[in-house]
């Protein structure tokens, strides 16, 4: 049923790891046995332009693209990209903005993408080990530790945000 589809948009700027974050989320959902589709536009993304990626999962998914105004979650990696991407979010949808996590406590600033996935993970029913496996699958071994640590920090921040 289409109404069981979870729609996520990940947005940011080229070089911030938007596409990697989308890959990790999609992989976690895939490993959980869901029907998944991941869409993205990449072409000029290396040159610092805006990048968004769509991840949709559920029982039955057709289009790989999230419809404007129908995203359940909007994860944004760059503060300046929040306003223009709001149109994706449905009424009552959850915005996960970059300031949800305190960048200064991350082991490496480049892991902000994974930290924000940590926040998102609090809202989704995908097992933590699936997330961890997906993170390892999409990062070079020497970055595993920093990313897994950032993911945990993101989860903690997510629990605080959700509780608040």
């Amino acid at each position: 049923m289409t109404d069981q589809v979870t729609n996520v948009i990940i947005a940011g700027l080229g070089g911030q790891g938007v596409l990697t974050a989308a890959d990790i989320l999609a992989e976690a959902a895939f490993r959980a046995g869901r029907e998944v589709k991941k869409g993205e536009l990449h072409g000029m993304s290396q040159r610092g332009g805006s990048v968004t990626s769509d991840v949709r999962f559920g029982v039955r998914v057709f289009s790989p693209m999230v419809t404007a105004g129908e995203a359940d979650y909007l994860v944004v990696l760059a503060a300046e990209q929040v306003a223009n991407n709001r149109i994706w979010l449905k009424a009552g949808g959850t915005l996960i903005a970059p300031e949800t996590v305190d960048e200064s406590v991350l082991p490496d600033k480049r892991t902000l993408n994974v930290a924000l996935l940590g926040v998102l993970s609090v809202y989704l029913d995908l097992g933590v080990t699936l997330w961890q496996d997906a993170i390892r699958g999409h990062q070079a071994p020497r970055f595993h530790e920093a990313n897994l640590q950032s993911f945990d920090l993101g989860r903690a921040a997510g629990r605080r945000a959700r509780g608040a």
């Binding site: 700027l13 080229g14 000029m44 993304s45 290396q46 040159r47 610092g48 332009g49 805006s50 404007a68 300046e80 990209q81 223009n84 991407n85 149109i87 994706w88």
Partner: peptide, 13 residues
Amino acid sequence: EAAAPAERPPQLC
């Protein structure tokens, strides 16, 4: 149709 979200254009590195 509603305009697509404003995008930051790519640039030379």
